[in-house]
């Protein structure tokens, strides 16, 4: 807890500074906004991030996070502001996308004194899903000395190509049909972070992987891992997809295991939204793609079957 005297001195100094800088008459009473800036994926603190506070486009306070991601910014509210005013806090960091968020002040004091801010790694913010169900296809780690531009986009297209046709066979409506979003900027340090990416980007699944070149072969082996946002599988499911032509990756070349894992994640997302009827329809598509049904699919089916209204039709009829 900071000393009140220190706060008062700091606020006064900031007020003077702002008046000097912008020539604007400020209110005598200063306020403080504090909180933590973290990485939206890893939830680790972001040190050295700048936090700026604005009112009506005018800067009224600024500060920087410490090594623990903590910030504490004193700001002055212009006298013309109404008793209840909406302020804007912007967090900036070299390694992350900027984040702008609103907070309210009432009678010169923030309604919520703690204002935590999550920052997405650079380039990832725009990958946030805007549709009901989505799969994010992140970066694929290339072999040393090689670069495969736009590979995540092409893998996303091939997954969409392979899976949406099959999902059409069970009459998924356009609102439910998943979108497959490429996001090359999404580069988890390890596959374990894939689930965090999926959750943070509001997707059902995150797909990533790495590429290995086979000696003397024109094609590559691509290891694809699928992580889900709903806790369907504890660890990412991995599948090795051999002999993929990276100039033209195709859904036909991706293994059934990968497809099933993606479909399972989408079904889990539907189940989480209490739509077990559609989740079972998606599971039935997954079940047709492989000879041996993975335990997580069987488990999810069992859970969903217990939750559909049709479960009330089971049992013996009494005369």
């Amino acid at each position: 807890m900071a000393e009140p005297r220190f706060i008062w001195l700091f606020a006064e100094a900031a007020g003077i500074l702002l008046v000097t800088l912008f020539g604007t008459a400020l209110a005598a009473a200063d306020s403080i906004l504090a909180g933590t800036v973290t990485d939206a994926i890893s939830h680790q603190p972001v040190a050295g991030a700048e936090v700026r506070i604005e009112y009506s486009g005018q800067l009224v306070g600024a500060g920087t996070t410490d090594i623990d991601g903590l910030y504490r910014v004193s700001f002055a509210i212009p006298p013309a502001a109404p008793p209840v005013a909406t302020m804007v806090a912007t967090a900036l960091s070299g390694s992350h996308d900027a984040n702008r968020s609103n907070f309210q002040v009432r009678d010169g004091t923030p309604v919520e004194t703690v204002h935590n801010i999550a920052l997405f790694p650079s380039g990832v913010t725009d990958c946030r899903s805007l549709t009901g169900h989505s799969v994010i296809v992140g970066h694929f780690l290339p072999p040393v000395g090689r670069d495969f531009a736009e590979l995540s986009r092409r893998i996303a297209e091939s997954l969409e190509f392979a899976l949406n046709t099959r999902l059409q066979t069970v009459h998924l409506t356009l609102e439910i049909l998943p979108s497959f979003e490429p996001c090359d900027a999404a580069r988890p340090r390890t596959p374990k972070f894939g689930a965090s990416f999926a959750k943070a980007l509001r997707a059902d699944a995150f797909v990533g992987g790495n590429i290995a070149a086979a000696d003397g072969q024109p094609n590559f082996t691509v290891t694809i891992y699928v992580s889900d946002a709903h806790g369907l599988f504890r660890d990412p499911t991995m599948a090795s997809n051999k002999s993929i032509d990276l100039d033209n990756p195709s859904g036909a070349a991706v293994t059934g295991e990968t497809h099933v894992a993606v479909l399972g994640s989408i079904a889990a997302g539907l189940a989480e939204k209490n739509d077990c009827v559609t989740a079972i329809a998606v599971l039935s598509v997954a079940e047709r793609l492989v000879k041996v049904i993975p335990p997580y699919i069987a488990e999810l089916r069992k859970t969903c079957e217990a939750r559909v209204p049709n479960a009330g039709l089971l049992g013996r009829s009494m005369p």
């Binding site: 077990c276 009827v277 559609t278 079972i280 079957e305 049709n310 479960a311 089971l314 013996r316 009829s317």
Partner: peptide, 17 residues
């Protein structure tokens, strides 16, 4: 009739749509 209905109800749960 009862065994027919029981089996059909099971199928309805497995394919609730």
């Amino acid at each position: 009739i009862e065994p027919i209905v029981t089996r059909l109800a099971d199928a309805s749960v497995a394919d609730p749509s």
